[in-house]
Design a protein around this nucleic acid. Structure first.
Length: 407
DNA sequence: AGCCTTTGACCAGCG
DNA sequence: TCGCTGGTCAAAGGC
């Protein structure tokens, strides 16, 4: 997944911390948000939902319904204001998720990895298809989101506020009529308003969304980094996401913190068969490891294996092997290798690391990466069917390492 | 054979 | 100057 945040010289880290604490306890979909960002919101939420379908289809069906209802109501109101002759007689639509098995959804490209395919999002967008000023299909919606001036506003606002999450309770934000307390999930401050993804959707889920990626990174990775760097940079499966830039110097450093994994990804971590590919497109060689003083964390040092490439990365892991921070240093001066010799798109540099960061990234604009992703996903699918025989070498290695870690 | 990880030693910056 | 710490080197061994 990729977040593009063009922050200039800002200290994103500090800024993020500030914003995080400054986030209001409650937020809601106000009119402005619905006006300006509903297509994008649909896109984001839908994609997030799609990615969470393994966990609780019912919950996400409810979510989709909430989202749809909120937007539908809003647009109905808006339309009745602008057009007195509006019939408004249509009943509020409901959404039903197609009874597709997760595996099919996930690996057939239905979750947005290989382009945007029909799914819940289409259902949501279809809800508004009788409004001529709205995007009628998912792809149109995507295109509209990307093309609209509001998209620029989204990017611009991203300059103001990195993505963060808030723990604890909060009101339902997707359905303005609902005042029931629910745990609040991801919140993206979006002056003059904001939106929050309800419980069950981790920040990572949203951040990991290719839609989100598309919104925030149409062209270039963060801080002038390549997509591949950024992909690996933003691990984003924790409850907080931290992005730091040291762009004032030629040397670029980015940091991602992953204090903890949300439950769905914890299980994905344990159940490797559900894991996503660990690959940022580059090959890495580990050249050192240090125990972080005064803590159980250990720090691993990696170099890009390209002889002419100065890029290094540090991965900080907790005792249980979870990646808590990934720090990239430098910028690749070459394209990612087309073929990784070692194991189906994985690479050894991130094998020990098998960065969850990398695992949750999604395709970027690169066809190569998309292809790589699909290939790896396929491997994973096969594992689900026959774990014994069809593991990639890298997965075997990872397992071995994890076993070692446990002992 | 080639590439990788591991790991102890070494080096440099800093207080 | 010394000790601490982070970062890197390089030999050894594994896959």
């Amino acid at each position: 997944m990729l977040i593009t945040v063009r922050r200039g010289q800002h200290d994103l880290d500090a800024d993020y911390r500030h914003k995080r604490t400054a986030l209001p306890p409650n937020s809601l979909f106000n009119s402005s948000i619905l006006d300006n960002f509903s297509p994008r919101l649909e896109l984001l939420v839908s994609d997030a939902v799609k990615r969470q379908m393994t966990k609780d289809d019912e919950k996400h069906q409810k979510l989709l319904t909430d989202v749809g209802s909120a937007l539908y109501d809003h647009r109905q109101q808006k339309q009745s204001l602008t057009s007195k002759s509006s019939t408004g007689g249509a009943s509020r639509p409901t959404i039903s998720l197609p009874p597709r098995p997760f595996g099919e959804m996930f690996y057939s490209g239905g979750v947005g990895f290989s382009g945007f395919s029909p799914g819940p999002m289409t259902l949501v967008s279809n809800m508004f298809s009788d409004h001529s000023d709205e995007f009628k299909s998912f792809s149109q919606l995507v295109a509209g989101a990307m093309a609209s001036p509001a998209a620029a506003a989204v990017v611009a606002s991203a300059h103001q506020t990195p993505v963060s999450s808030v723990g604890g309770g909060g009101d339902s934000l997707l359905d303005p009529r609902s005042k029931q307390n629910r745990p609040t999930g991801l919140m993206i401050t979006q002056p003059p308003g904001m939106f929050t993804v309800p419980p069950g959707l981790s920040p990572a889920t949203l951040l990991d969304s290719p839609s989100f990626f598309g919104l925030f990174s149409p062209i270039q990775g963060s801080f002038g980094m390549t997509h591949q760097q950024a992909l690996a940079q933003v691990t984003a499966q924790g409850n907080t996401v931290q992005i730091q830039s040291g762009s004032s110097t030629q040397q670029q450093t980015s940091v991602t913190e992953v204090p903890s994994l949300p439950a769905p990804y914890q299980s994905m971590r344990v159940g490797r068969s559900l894991r996503m590919p660990a690959d940022d497109g580059y090959n890495w060689r580990k050249y050192g490891q240090k125990q972080v003083k005064g803590s159980d964390f250990r720090r691993s040092y990696y170099k890009c294996t390209n002889p002419a490439c100065p890029v290094k990365k540090k991965i900080v892991r907790s005792v249980d092997g979870q990646v808590t921070k990934t720090i990239y240093k430098g910028q690749h001066n070459h394209e990612p290798p087309q073929n990784n010799k070692r194991g189906g798109g994985n690479n050894n540099g991130s094998s020990e690391s098998s960065d969850i960061a990398n695992q949750f990234k999604t395709s970027n604009n690169s066809l190569n990466k998309s292809k790589r992703y699909q290939e790896t996903s396929q491997v994973t699918t096969t594992e689900q069917k026959s774990e014994a025989n069809l593991e990639s070498a890298s997965v075997k290695r990872e397992r071995s390492e994890e076993a070692t870690e446990r002992n």
